[in-house]
């Protein structure tokens, strides 16, 4: 996590706090639909390409309806891409079996499955990012807890998230101080590193102690209380029902294929 990461978390939270029809939906609805979406996309066989394309409707629609800038999601998509790209690139190298001839072309199966990996990647990652950008971390955690996430873990996520900025700021100040005193911007030796990060650790632990005192001072007794319980509304049911139906439809029928055949003029 670098400086840019810290800034990205910040922007994500700002988007999470927007107001839009998508933001007003219950976190549970969005979480479940997102999981259904990802599972459906993952369930396609490895050479599938065209049937995956209709699924782009989901992230596109969510981004459009929520007011989250598409460029933000796209940028994060590109940043996260290398791993899937690297592993995926082996497919064209290893799977050279030609799978079809079209006008004299033989295409290696590996290229198809590589393309499929890229589509899957773009779909699943954009859906996951959109979920958070349309919900915000605190509402998402509360929603997940109502879906059965253990309370210890929900509280852990919120605390972690709350103190990322605080501790990252301390780390940044330390790094800046180090850079000012080291020549040529070289990284410190393990020994210096140990004392630097060790200090950071001790300060973090001291802070945890102080937070604990502050919690006790306001009656903390081991339980994290929550305010209003949210309700599922009509739009939630419509949202979930509509999208799930679409996923089933697009999974069973290759919509793109049908459209393509219709347009390439071949009649039954």
């Amino acid at each position: 996590m670098g400086v840019s990461h810290s800034a990205a978390v910040h922007r994500m939270e700002i988007f999470g706090g927007l107001d839009s029809p998508m933001h007003r939906l219950d976190a549970r609805t969005k979480a479940l639909v997102t999981v259904a979406f990802i599972a459906t996309v993952m369930s396609f066989p490895r050479y599938e390409l065209s049937a995956l394309t209709p699924f782009f409707l989901y992230p596109f629609a969510l981004v459009a309806l929520s007011g989250v800038p598409p460029g933000f999601i796209l940028k994060k998509l590109l940043i996260a891409a290398p791993f899937a790209l690297c592993i995926g690139l082996f497919n064209p190298l290893l799977d050279r079996q030609p799978v079809f001839l079209a006008g004299g072309f033989a295409v290696a199966g590996g290229w198809l499955s590589f393309g499929s990996i890229l589509l899957r990647f773009a779909l699943t990652v954009s859906a996951a990012l959109t979920l958070l950008a349309c919900t915000g971390m605190s509402r998402l955690c509360a929603g997940l807890e109502r879906l059965g996430l253990p309370k210890v873990l929900a509280v852990q996520l919120l605390f972690l998230y709350r103190y990322i900025f605080v501790i990252a700021d301390e780390a940044l100040r330390m790094r800046r101080g180090l850079e000012l005193r080291s020549s040529g911007g070289r990284s410190p030796s393990p020994r210096v590193y140990g004392s630097l990060v060790g200090h950071l650790l001790l300060r973090a632990m001291d802070r945890a102690q102080r937070i604990y005192s502050a919690m006790l001072a306001r009656g903390f007794n081991g339980d994290m209380p929550t305010l209003q319980p949210a309700r599922l509304h009509g739009p939630d049911i419509a949202f979930a029902g509509g999208w799930l139906a679409f996923f089933v439809l697009a999974r069973c029928w290759n919509l793109a294929d049908h459209l393509g055949r219709l347009l390439t003029g071949v009649r039954p």
């Binding site: 605190s138 102080r210 937070i211 502050a214 919690m215 009656g219 209380p225 929550t226 305010l227």
Partner: peptide, 25 residues
């Protein structure tokens, strides 16, 4: 008690939840 560093005292996700933390407890 108002602690020296407000970051130690404001640990809940939103301002409202933080202020309600004591009364709820």
């Amino acid at each position: 008690m108002v602690f020296q560093d407000p970051d130690d005292q404001l640990f809940m996700p939103t301002v409202l939840e933080d202020v309600a933390f004591g009364p709820l407890n």
